[in-house]
Amino acid sequence: MSPEGSRILAVITTREGVVGGGVPVFLVASEKERDQVSVLLSRILQAVVHDLQNGVYVIVRH
């Protein structure tokens, strides 16, 4: 775990109308695209994909 604790690096979601806060939000068209984008982002950022089970995936660095 990084000393400053876990941090959300990006949000990937199919839900429209999600407003971005301090983190980048990636709006995707389908669940398939969500999976692809999540894999790519997690590899690029060297972080873990977590499923919030409401259609939202977050990329978190631990």
């Binding site: 994909v49 977590h50 499923d51 089970q53 995936y57």
Partner: peptide, 20 residues
Amino acid sequence: DGPLLTVAGVTIMNVGLDSA
């Protein structure tokens, strides 16, 4: 359990990716 990796009733972590 959904995305939750569970062993013997203990949740270890949330694995979001289906491939993982």
